Computed example of a mutant assay.
Amino acid sequence: MSTAAPAIPPAPSAPQDSLPVIDLAELGDSARHTPAHARLARIARDIGFFYLEGHGIDSAQIERMETITRQFFALPPEAKQRIAMRNSRHFRGYTGVGGEITRLRPDLREQIDFGEELPPIHQAPETPAWWGLQGPNQWPEELPALQGEILAWLETTRKAAKRLLQAFLVALEQPATALDALVAQPHNNRLKIIHYPGQAQSQSDQGVGTHKDGGLLTLLLQDEVGGLQVQTAHGWLDVPPRKNAFVVNIGEMLELATNGYLRANVHRVVSPRSGASRYSIAYFFSPSLQAREVPLLDLPPHLAQQARGPESDPLNPLFSHIGTNALKGRVRSHLDVAEKFYPAQFAQLDAKAPSAY
């Protein structure tokens, strides 16, 4: 691997009017640093968001996922409530509008959360609480085709996300396999399919509140209705839909691994107006719980000197321990599940101890 890659230039001072586009196919050989890798690192450091094309996922599979997403949310309310997340210690299942919390305010969306389909870990007194995140999904009897499409999507998107992670490592002059152990089995990736109902102008427009993502990489598919916004030095940047392209952003765990060279960026979703609906499919590529700790990459000096250290929000502290960090995010977002299945962690929230959760 080349050690003579040029230093990444500083962020531009002029405001951006659109996200850049990365073609994963152009990154080519994962063992060789190219100008395309240098561009990837620059974009990820400057704004932390980009469109991803050339990902290799067939458009027919994308169309099936978009169709079945709409079919799920068209189910009767009682069918969705039968698989409510509040019934799952693994934080899997349906959440109605206002049921998830971001920065202490309800998000005006309905969603169903999935994860890797794995057996639950036996909960003995000495078992760390965060192993409760592993387990089976909940599936609606009224839509049997959903299970096959979701599990296929988890597999397909995992492969694309790993290719992209390896490209990032090459861009930072690391071996492409440097984080393979971090994303090894048992996998801990998550998927949300989401519906944002329209809101009247007199109501809150918090589809999702201002936040950062907690994993390594997020790969998001949007429909034709906008609403995603990314924070920049010049204000909020709209991220309009791009057909069959993912919107990719850096998660906090990749920020930790690079000592802040790559930074997770703040974003939000503004609700559509009354009469409209927005649908999206969000895949969160995350470290395996088995890996325990996020390793710190040994960046070459010309990159290390530009690493700013991970940025921790006092209201949402970062932990290098993977399970602790993952459970913290779930507990803070789904208070009903936390109170029922994680009373100790819920009590820490209730006692307003942000240093713990």
Rank of each mutant, 00 (worst) to 15 (best):
S2G: 12
T3R: 11
P6K: 07
P9A: 09
A14E: 14
A14M: 11
S18N: 13
P20E: 02
P20V: 05
V21S: 10
V21P: 05
A25N: 12
E26L: 13
T34L: 04
P35F: 09
A36M: 03
A38F: 07
A38I: 08
R39D: 03
D46F: 07
G48K: 01
H55F: 07
I62V: 12
M65R: 06
R70Q: 08
Q71T: 11
Q71S: 14
F72A: 01
A79C: 11
Q81G: 09
Q81T: 14
M85N: 01
R86V: 14
R89M: 13
R89F: 09
G93V: 03
T95W: 03
E100K: 03
T102K: 04
P106E: 01
D107R: 03
I112T: 07
E117P: 06
L118K: 12
P119K: 13
P119M: 12
H122V: 15
Q123K: 14
P128S: 08
A129L: 12
G132F: 02
N137K: 11
P140A: 07
E142A: 15
L143Q: 03
P144F: 08
L146C: 04
Q147G: 08
I150H: 00
L154E: 08
R163T: 10
R163S: 12
L164Q: 00
L164Y: 03
V170I: 14
L172H: 03
P175K: 05
A176H: 12
D180S: 09
D180E: 09
L182K: 07
L182W: 06
N188Y: 11
K192S: 07
I194P: 00
G198P: 03
T210E: 14
G215S: 04
L217R: 02
Q222E: 07
V225I: 10
T232A: 10
H234S: 15
W236Q: 05
P240F: 00
N244E: 06
N244I: 02
N244P: 10
F246Y: 09
V248F: 00
G251N: 04
E252K: 13
M253H: 07
M253P: 04
M253A: 14
L254K: 05
Y261E: 04
Y261I: 05
A264S: 13
V270R: 02
V270W: 00
S271E: 01
Y279G: 01
F285M: 06
L289S: 07
E293S: 13
V294D: 01
L297C: 05
L299D: 04
H302A: 08
Q306D: 08
A307G: 09
R308S: 15
D313I: 08
H321R: 11
I322M: 06
G323T: 06
G323K: 02
G323L: 04
A326H: 07
L327N: 02
L327Y: 04
S333E: 11
D336Q: 12
Y342W: 07
D350C: 15
A351H: 14
K352I: 13
P354K: 06
